[in-house]
């Protein structure tokens, strides 16, 4: 069976993966907002304080820091994974290049400059600074998003930290002061560690385990020793 052309696929089916995850993202963010409000209000009650509304909660630093500390770790994960898989291999993994293919590969293999195809992206054909940037654009975007989300999480974490300091009648800290607080690093490390475990285990689990039909897996009958996306 040949692959269907884009004309046979409507907008929804052609973008099903991205749209489905986008929809689940919205639903789960809503779930976080509702359960977060309930959790926040349980603590307010325990401290003898007034409960807050859903709107007040989602415009609070308490909600913001819980969202952004998770975002930053996801983009760190993808940024590191995209770069690490250029240079490091895992023998037998569907997530890895074959041993011996480490590195950025030749212009011919990457179809850039004079090796570009007719339908190659414009910035792949030029062979100048545009190709240099385009060749790294996915990693650059993930790296930039990591830095931006990490800075955002530090700003909102700083505000949340200071409101807790004030509630406990302690002095607020400056933003730079917050970057040296255990709270900031605890929030960062607790998210980072889970991403590293998930990525490392996924890379090696895909050596011996299969998921029929998934591009994240080797075809079911392919040998364990076979590395790379063979099907």
């Amino acid at each position: 069976m040949s692959a269907a052309s884009s004309k046979e696929y409507g907008f929804l089916r052609a973008n099903a993966l991205s749209l489905a995850f986008g929809a689940v993202f919205v639903v789960t963010l809503g779930g976080q907002a509702i359960s977060g409000t309930a959790d926040f209000n349980a603590q307010q009650k325990a401290n003898g304080l007034e409960p807050v509304s859903l709107l007040e909660y989602v415009t609070s630093s308490s909600f913001g820091v819980d969202v952004m500390e998770n975002w930053q770790s996801e983009y760190l994960q993808f940024f590191l994974y995209i770069f690490a898989t250029v240079w490091l291999v895992q023998r037998g993994s569907s997530e890895s290049k074959k041993p011996g293919e480490e590195g950025t590969e030749s212009d011919k293999e990457q179809k850039i400059g004079r090796h570009a195809d007719e339908d190659s992206p414009k910035w792949a054909k030029t062979g100048d600074w545009r190709t240099v940037i385009f060749s790294r654009s996915l990693g650059l975007l993930m790296g930039a998003l990591f830095l931006l989300t990490w800075v955002a999480s530090s700003l909102v974490g700083w505000a949340a930290f200071n409101s807790e300091q004030l509630a406990e009648r302690q002095d607020p800290v400056s933003w730079l002061g917050y970057l040296g607080e255990a709270d900031f690093w605890n929030r960062s490390f607790q998210n980072w560690q889970s991403e590293m475990l998930a990525v490392g285990s996924m890379a090696v689990f895909s050596v011996y385990l299969r998921q029929r039909g998934s591009p994240e897996s080797k075809p079911v009958g392919v040998a364990h020793a076979e590395t790379g996306q063979t099907g």
Binding site: A14, T59, S60, W71, L148, V151, L155, G157, A159
Partner: peptide, 30 residues
């Protein structure tokens, strides 16, 4: 491929707006 561009731009917009919104919450000290 035209439709895919909208999904691409949509994701990027949501991420950037999220970053701006949460940063603003932090800077306003909410």
């Amino acid at each position: 491929m035209r439709g895919v561009r909208f999904v691409f731009a949509g994701y990027l917009l949501v991420i950037v707006l999220g970053i701006v919104y949460v940063s603003a919450l932090g800077l306003m000290g909410r």
